[in-house]
Computed example of a mutant assay.
Amino acid sequence: MIVGVVADARNDGLRNPVKPAVFIPYTLSMSQGTQILARSDVPPMTLVHAIGKQVNAVNAEQQIYDNVEELSLWIAEEPEWQQDHLVSWIFGLFASLGLALAAVGLYSVVSYTVAQRTNEFGIRVALGAGRAHVLRIVFASTLVSVGGGVLCGLVLIGGLNKILARWADGNAHDPMVLTAGTLLLGLVAGIACAIPAQRASRVDPITALRCD
């Protein structure tokens, strides 16, 4: 008789495929060294004494070993988890470095573009354009560049997903991950563009028209 069906669980290491398994009542078969897993909303180690009392209430002669530890700590000691953790840190480090380089590069490009268009902004301001209009021009040009870069990145993610899957678990097509990454890039681009845009909106028309 089947009582119920549970979801798959890692029962043969963190990397090996899940093997078929069944749960048998402990009253029918309990091997030596049986482990008991307990889930709680409080620190697990604070419940060791209470769990021991419950076990003794069922069988006063049942021995309980002292090597009790949190499941998260036990998993963290596995070589597979440590290697994946290291790979995650390396990917995160390179991602942070790439984000910083992109922000510096974008700031430099926008600053150079603003400097080259100083006369244009001066003429626009002289003809009555407001600061908001100049800001929209600078941000619009940056949006085109950033939008093109994000689009190329999404295309590369679709093409390189299988290669990246060999190094780290997870799905690169996760909409939450893609959305968060796009928003983060947009935020960094906005910050990198803000200073040059503010400078462009404060251009003195007379000074700008005198520039070569």
Rank of each mutant, 00 (worst) to 15 (best):
G4V: 06
L160V: 14
D169C: 01
A200G: 06
Q32G: 07
Q83H: 12
T34I: 11
G13V: 10
A102Y: 12
G147A: 09
T34H: 04
P17E: 10
A57Q: 13
R124I: 12
A194V: 06
A194Y: 14
L156K: 01
T182G: 07
A168R: 06
G170W: 13
W74M: 12
A194G: 03
V5T: 09
R39D: 03
A172P: 08
V18K: 01
G105L: 05
H133F: 02
L143Q: 07
Q83Y: 01
D169K: 12
E77L: 08
Q35H: 05
V68R: 13
L154H: 13
P175E: 11
I36Y: 09
A115Q: 08
P20G: 01
V42I: 15
T118S: 13
C152V: 15
L37G: 08
R199A: 08
S88T: 15
V138S: 03
L187C: 14
D66Y: 08
G105A: 01
P196T: 06
D84N: 02
K19R: 15
A102C: 01
Q32C: 00
S108L: 02
L106F: 13
P79H: 08
N11P: 10
C152L: 15
V177D: 08
I195A: 15
N56V: 00
A9D: 13
F91G: 02
V68K: 04
N67G: 10
L47F: 03
G149K: 09
L97P: 02
G98A: 11
I206L: 14
N59Y: 11
A180S: 15
A95R: 12
V155T: 10
M176L: 15
V188Q: 05
A194K: 05
K53F: 02
A140S: 09
I51C: 04
V134M: 02
I191N: 03
A103M: 09
T179W: 14
R117Y: 11
A168W: 04
N119M: 01
S201D: 01
G170M: 02
S145W: 07
Y65C: 00
A132S: 06
L154A: 11
V5L: 14
T27H: 04
D8I: 07
P20A: 03
S201W: 01
T182W: 07
R117H: 13
V203W: 03
I123E: 05
G33S: 05
G92S: 15
R39P: 00
A129Q: 01
A172C: 02
V177W: 11
Y112N: 05
S88Y: 08
